[in-house]
Nucleic acid binder design. Structure first.
Lengths: 225, 225
DNA sequence: ACCGCGACGATACCGAGTTTCAGGGGCGAT
DNA sequence: ATCGCCCCTGAAACTCGGTATCGTCGCGGT
């Protein structure tokens, strides 16, 4: 005996696959699932929510994991909390792939997924802020924000690769991505670019630089450096 | 003679301030603005869009500036593109503050603003990907993504501080934030003596650009823009 | 049997957004 | 001046997501 909630999720994804998200009404979903409109909105609150059936659950597990972190081990806490998200998607498998197709094609759903990711990022940020505050350092707010954004972004890159079928070993890529973001001696993404800024002039007189600029502007744009 | 578009924006913000976003219907807005419902939806497409009246315009300006970037000068391009966003908010002033109050209290609008920020971030990411690809280096995708996320996040921290009235000099904080995310290590001697000249846009008269360069070189490095 | 409670269904209603049709006012061409 | 064209506007009907209300059924506890 499948629960009516499961039947609604199943019916919804099937109909979205068949005729698209916008073209599918809640009326059709509840009809196929054999329930009433009231039941649908009681269970999911909105038509969009049925796309992310286990969102609340995941958010709670992330919060729980972050709660156990300490300033001394905050990198591990962030890494494992991000791993919870990846594990959830890998576990959902077909559901995650269907959702990916939908979020690619329907802007409203894409925005919705982004918002939920930012929800996770908010959890990361708040905990990072506390940890970094205890550790001390300059501009804790900015650093915590950047840390959370980097972790979530790195996770998303790996997740998206898996969703596109571009990787066979997402966990390995996840470890690498987390290492490049959370490595103790790395100060941020800019420090790892391995690129150099081109210094065009150093101690030439100002007027000489100005002359170079004027000359450069008279050349075709494609040749400018 | 104010345009009907302006009157609608004005009426909408006034009503949102008075009675909140959800409690205000489009009917009331158009009534105060003296236009019809049809006109409203023709001009803005949705009730949410009226909150971000110049969004399309800003997005276009960001894209235009990023187009002028080169691999050698990508940090400056990113920095100045981000500066466009901050400048837009500072310019809107009261409108930006009203919007901030709304986005804090109405989840739907918060999601909407996040989505538009991510729209900017997407522009940053795509251009960063191209630039980093030309420069070479490991995992261009990941680093382009992290770079874009870091720039946007750093910008948002400064913007939010200004919106909360926590800073009197947002441009100074912006410079610092961008430096901590974009600048190569500034402790080397080359960074102290060097002068980097980057021409981003060339639709201004040559002499005007030259004048800007001369003037900029006479100012302290941290204040250049 | 009685009660409480939680899940479900039916209905009415609100408001956002779309579609369609009907003016109406500039504006250049003849 | 008149005609035709086009763009902007208004009016009204319609779809559909989401909310609120109320009645019903099942089920365990007493």
């Amino acid at each position: 005996m499948t629960s009516s909630r499961e039947r609604m999720v199943e019916a919804a994804f099937a109909l979205f696959d068949e005729q698209g998200y916008d073209a599918t009404t809640v009326e059709e979903i509840v009809e196929r699932a054999g329930v009433s409109r009231s039941t649908f909105f009681r269970a999911f609150g909105s038509k969009e929510d049925v796309i992310f059936p286990r969102h609340d659950d995941l958010q709670a597990r992330i919060a729980a994991r972050l709660e156990t972190g300490t300033p001394a081990s905050y990198r591990v806490a962030l890494r494992e909390a991000a791993a919870l998200v990846l594990a959830q998607y890998l576990d959902e498998d077909q559901l995650a792939l269907s959702r990916y197709r939908l979020t690619r094609s329907v802007p409203a759903l894409r925005d919705r997924e982004i918002a939920s990711m930012l929800g996770y990022q908010r959890l990361f940020r708040e905990h990072a802020r506390r940890w970094l505050a205890e550790l001390g350092g300059p501009d804790v707010d900015l650093h915590a924000e950047l840390l959370a954004a980097s972790v979530v972004t790195a996770h998303n890159v790996v997740l998206r690769r898996w969703l596109r079928g571009e990787t066979a070993d997402p966990w390995h890529e996840f470890d690498d991505a987390m290492a490049s973001v959370l490595a103790p001696d790395a100060s941020g993404p800019a420090a790892q670019q391995g690129t150099t800024v081109v210094v065009l002039q150093d101690d030439r007189p100002v007027e000489e630089v100005v002359a170079s600029v004027r000359e450069a502007l008279s050349r075709p744009a494609s040749r400018r450096r």
